[in-house]
Simulated scan of single mutants.
Amino acid sequence: MGISEIIWLVLGLGLILSEFALPGFVIFFFGTGALLTGLLTWLIPGLGSNLLLQIILWLGTSALSLGFLRKKLSSVFKGTLLGDSKAPQLESDADSGQTATVVQDISPEKAGRISLHGTTWTAKSFDEHFQKGETVEILKKEGMTYWVTRSLI
């Protein structure tokens, strides 16, 4: 195996690995083209000494793999962006509207704690004060913190 084959193989692996850091799922196919060029340079005698032909072969195999495989493979490697309306939500508002018991005073200036589902959670209020023992209604959940209001029950 000559130096040009090794260079193409290393370049191909580097391009494929760089796809993890760069979005778009395009560089992968240039890496695939480089791997194919390295393989063909090793298999076809005389190709290792013709750099122009190697570059043309690399561009051609990259374009063919990009054209024929990207659509099929992109669904396998596709992720979802956070905040995308089609992405699954990280949190649900399943607790919204439920009631909980205050176990540590809550005020707009200072978060307190509520008891819900057998454990305690941090709770905040926009403009109301709650004392230990009061019942509150959950408005929403942000991270590990519940926003609460006065319960009508």
Rank of each mutant, 00 (worst) to 15 (best):
I6G: 08
W8G: 10
G12Q: 06
G12L: 05
G12K: 04
I16Q: 05
I16P: 06
L17N: 09
E19S: 04
A21C: 07
L22E: 05
I27T: 12
I27Y: 05
F30V: 03
F30T: 06
G31V: 02
L35D: 01
L36N: 02
T37A: 00
L39E: 02
T41I: 00
W42P: 01
I44D: 00
I44Y: 01
I44L: 06
G48C: 02
N50G: 03
L51K: 03
L52G: 09
L53T: 08
Q54S: 00
I56K: 00
L57D: 01
W58N: 01
L59M: 05
L64A: 09
L69V: 01
R70L: 00
L73S: 07
L73C: 06
S74R: 13
S74G: 05
S75V: 13
V76Y: 11
F77S: 00
K78I: 06
L81M: 14
K86Y: 13
A87Y: 07
D93G: 13
A94C: 11
A94N: 14
S96E: 14
G97V: 07
V102R: 08
Q104T: 15
D105H: 04
E109H: 12
L116G: 03
L116M: 08
T120F: 01
W121C: 03
T122D: 12
D127W: 02
E128R: 11
K132Q: 11
G133M: 04
E134Y: 04
V136H: 03
E137R: 15
I138E: 03
I138A: 03
L139G: 13
M144Q: 14
W147C: 07
S151F: 05
L152R: 15
I153C: 12
